[in-house]
Design a binder for these strands. Structure first.
Length: 586
RNA sequence: GGGGUCGUAGUUCAGUUUGGUUAGAACGCUGGCCUGUCACGCCAGAGGUCGCGAGUUCGAGUCUCGUCGGCCCCGCCA
C-alpha cells in the first residue's frame, strides 16, 4: 500500500499555514495524529515537529478508490498530501491549534508508510510508563514536550557557542580514548587490541587535556564535552553526560565568574526570553553550610538556619551539652509551617542518614513553644528561638551534632518543596572558598574536595603538610535552585606545588610521575596560571525545562541501572571478540 | 552493595486490605454505520503466562520466600 516519495517535495511544514495562505496549493508531509472518518468526508490531523494541520478528504474532490485508500490511513501512518489551503467554515475553526483557521482540501495524496499499532501513542496523556517509553524511545521522542526540550537543548548549544566565541574562546575537541586515572570515579575501560593487556579509558572529563591546551597557549578554550563515569545513575546523573567545559589563562576567580554569568545571561535571553540578574550572589562554603546546611542551597527558600549552640549549652539540656563537648553544634530552623507527627517522623528518618538523631522539634504558637522538646528548653533558648522565628507560628526544628546544619539543611529543602517557590525564577549563586581537602573516615586519608589540580590560597599553602584540613582553595561551584550546575577552580600551574598537594593525598613522587608525569612535565615547560569550570549541560536544560530528571533532556538515556532498554546495551559479545583483545571472562 | 516502591489486556489503570463463580473499565485494535469533525459519534467483536520461579492452601492476581526489570534514595559520583 505504501508509495514511494517520487518527485514530491514538501512545500510547508505542518505548523505554518495561516488564513493568509488561503487558496495556495501546498504539499505537506507528516504523521497521522488523528483520523476522523465521517462516512463521507474524512479529517486527518497531520503532525510533524512544527505543528498540526487538518487535512480534508472529500468524495466531491477525490475519486472513490482514492477515498477508499484514504479510509485506510491509520494512526501514525506517514502521509504526503497536496491540496488547496482554505479557510475553515464558520464554526469549524479550532482556536486550540495555531493552524486552526485553515485546512488543506486534499486533491492528491500518498501513503508513504504504514504503522503497526503502536505500543503507545505520542498523543497519549498521561504518557506510558517510563520503562516502555525508554524501550520505544523513538516513539516517545515524537511527543511534543520532549521535542520542545530537545529544541531548547539545541538553542542552549547555539547560545553557548556564540557567547563564548564572542569572548574569544576557541572550541577544541579532546580525545575520547584517554589514559585511565585511578582517582575519582570508576573509569569505563577500553581494551587495546594492538597493545595486549593495556587499556584506554573513556574520559571522566577533559580536565587534563584542557590544562595542557593552556600550556600550549590556547588562552581561552571551551568544548561541549561528553563525559563518562562508571557510577550508579540517579535522577540527575547518567553514565554519560555533557559538560560545557571552559578553561582560560591568567584568570582571577572573578574573570571566570564574569564569563559564565554573561554566558548564562545570553543563554536565558536567547532561548527563554528571560533576563537574569548579574552578578550572581557569592557566598562562601562556610556561609552556605551554616545558613543553608548544604553546599548547593536553594536560594528561593526564604528560610535560614541559625546557630544556637551558646544558648543551648547554657540551658544545660544534656543532648545539646554533649554534642558541643565533642565539637558539634546546635542549630535551629523555624519552618514557619505546620508538620504532622507522621511528617516529622519521616524527616527524622532522613536526617538520621547524616548521623543526626534525634531531630528535636517544638510547635510555636501565639502562647509560646509547645510540645516536642519544648519542656526541655531553657527560658533563654526558648526566647532566642521565638525571636529567630520572628513570631511566625509553625514547627521549629533543632538538631545537635557535628552535622547539625546539614540535617536542618535537609529539613529546609523539604519545607521548601511545600512552599510556593516553583515559579519564583532561577536563583543562581556562586559558592566559593571550599576547603582543598576533606577527610575520608573509612580509608583514613585526605581526599581532594574538588580535584587535586586546584590551587590553594596563597596564605593556605604553609598549612599543606601540617594541617591540610585548614587549606582553602580557589574552588567554586555554580548552583541554581538547589541544583549543582557546575564546578571549577583556579588550577595549580607550578609542578612543585602540584607534587606537594599530591603528596598530601598519599601519592609518592614516583606514583605521581607514573600516573600524571605528562602533566607534571608539561608544567615545567612554561605552564601559565590558568583556571576554569565545567557546567552540567543536561542539568542546565533540566532546570530550564522544569523537569525532575536529566533523562528527559537526553535523546537516548540509560536507566538507573546503566543499561539502554532501546538497544539492549550493554550486551554479550562473541567469545572471539573477547579473545582478540587478549581478554578472558572470569 | 543496601533500603523503599511499582510490575494485571497492546497501553493507562481498577481488583490485592479480608484467598473463593466467568479478572473489569477507558484508550488503542478488528468489523459495520455516519458528509464538518478536531480526544468525532453510534453498534458489534477480538484481546489476559495477573513480570518470572518456588512454597503455603481444598483453592493464590490476592499470603510467604526467591528472582528479574523500572523508578526514588543511601553508598558511590576527584
Amino acid at each position: 500500500m505504501a508509495e514511494l516519495l517520487g518527485d514530491w517535495k514538501r512545500t510547508v511544514t505542518c505548523g505554518e499555514l495561516r488564513g493568509s495562505h488561503a487558496s495556495r496549493v501546498e504539499t505537506l508531509m507528516g504523521w497521522a495524529r488523528s483520523v476522523r472518518d465521517h462516512g463521507g468526508v474524512i479529517f486527518v490531523d497531520l503532525r510533524d515537529r512544527h505543528g498540526v494541520t487538518q487535512l480534508v478528504f472529500r468524495p466531491e474532490v477525490l475519486p472513490a478508490e482514492r477515498m477508499d485508500l484514504a479510509r485506510q490511513i491509520g494512526l501514525e501512518y506517514v502521509v504526503a498530501a497536496r491540496g488547496t489551503v482554505q479557510g475553515r467554515p464558520e464554526g469549524a475553526r479550532n482556536p486550540q491549534l495555531p493552524t486552526g483557521e485553515v485546512e488543506v482540501l486534499v486533491s492528491e495524496f500518498k501513503i508513504l508508510n504504514e504503522s503497526e499499532p503502536l505500543p503507545f501513542l505520542p498523543a497519549d496523556e498521561p504518557a506510558a510508563s517510563e520503562e516502555l517509553r525508554l524501550k520505544y524511545r523513538y516513539i516517545d521522542l515524537r511527543r511534543e514536550p520532549l521535542q520542545a526540550i530537545l529544541a531548547l537543548r539545541h538553542g542552549v548549544y547555539q547560545s553557548v557557542r556564540k557567547a563564548l566565541s564572542r569572548e574569544g574562546f576557541l572550541e577544541i575537541e579532546t580525545p575520547l580514548l584517554v589514559r585511565p586515572t585511578p582517582e575519582g570515579a570508576r573509569d569505563y575501560l577500553v581494551p587495546s587490541r594492538v597493545h595486549r593487556g593495556k587499556f584506554f579509558a573513556l574520559p571522566q572529563s577533559p580536565q587534563l587535556y584542557k590544562q595542557l591546551l593552556m600550556v600550549s597557549g590556547f588562552d581561552r578554550y571551551f568544548q561541549l564535552a561528553r563525559c563518562l563515569r562508571d557510577e550508579d545513575p540517579r535522577a540527575d546523573r547518567q553514565p554519560e553526560f555533557a559538560q560545557v567545559d571552559v578553561e582560560m589563562s591568567f584568570p582571577s576567580e572573578d574573570d571566570v565568574f564574569g564569563v559564565i554569568e554573561r554566558m548564562f545571561v545570553a543563554v536565558f535571553e536567547e532561548t527563554m526570553g528571560l533576563r537574569l540578574e548579574t552578578p550572581f550572589p557569592r557566598l562562601s562554603y562556610r556561609e552556605a553550610m551554616t545558613r543553608y546546611g548544604t553546599d548547593k542551597p536553594d536560594m528561593r527558600i526564604p528560610l535560614e538556619i541559625s546557630d544556637v549552640t551558646d544558648e543551648a549549652v547554657r540551658g544545660g539540656f544534656a543532648p545539646f551539652v554533649e554534642a558541643a563537648q565533642v565539637g558539634g553544634r546546635v542549630a535551629c530552623l523555624a519552618a514557619a509551617a505546620e508538620f504532622s507527627r507522621k511528617e516529622i517522623a519521616t524527616l527524622e528518618g532522613q536526617v538520621a542518614s547524616v548521623g543526626v538523631k534525634p531531630l528535636f522539634w517544638a510547635r510555636l504558637t501565639p502562647s509560646g513553644l509547645e510540645g516536642g522538646v519544648s519542656k526541655s528548653l531553657s527560658r533563654e533558648l526558648a526566647a532566642k528561638i521565638v525571636a529567630l522565628a520572628s513570631g511566625k507560628p509553625g514547627v521549629v526544628f533543632l538538631a545537635a551534632g557535628k552535622r547539625a546544619f546539614e540535617a536542618l539543611g535537609m529539613v529546609r529543602t523539604v519545607v521548601g518543596s511545600r512552599m510556593q517557590i516553583a515559579d519564583t525564577g532561577y536563583n543562581f549563586a556562586w559558592v566559593r572558598d571550599f576547603p582543598l581537602f576533606s577527610w575520608n573516615e573509612e580509608e583514613n586519608r585526605w581526599e581532594p574536595a574538588h580535584h587535586m589540580f586546584s590551587m590553594p590560597y596563597d596564605d593556605s599553602i604553609p598549612f599543606l603538610e601540617n594541617d591540610p584540613g585548614r587549606v582553602k582553595a580557589h574552588v567554586y561551584d555554580l548552583v541554581c535552585n538547589g541544583v549543582e550546575l557546575g564546578s571549577g577552580s583556579i588550577r595549580i600551574h607550578l609542578p612543585e606545588l602540584q607534587l606537594r598537594v599530591m603528596k598530601v593525598l598519599g601519592l609518592s613522587r614516583e606514583e605521581a610521575d607514573r600516573r600524571f608525569g605528562f602533566l607534571l612535565e608539561a608544567m615545567r615547560y612554561g605552564a601559565p596560571p590558568h583556571g576554569g569550570i565545567a557546567l552540567g549541560l543536561d542539568r542546565t536544560v533540566m532546570l530550564m525545562s522544569g523537569r525532575q530528571t536529566i533523562r528527559d533532556t537526553i535523546a537516548f538515556p540509560k536507566t538507573t541501572s546503566g543499561s539502554s532498554l532501546m538497544d539492549g546495551s550493554p550486551s554479550e559479545v562473541d567469545s572471539k571478540d573477547i579473545s582478540d583483545l587478549g581478554l578472558k571472562l572470569v
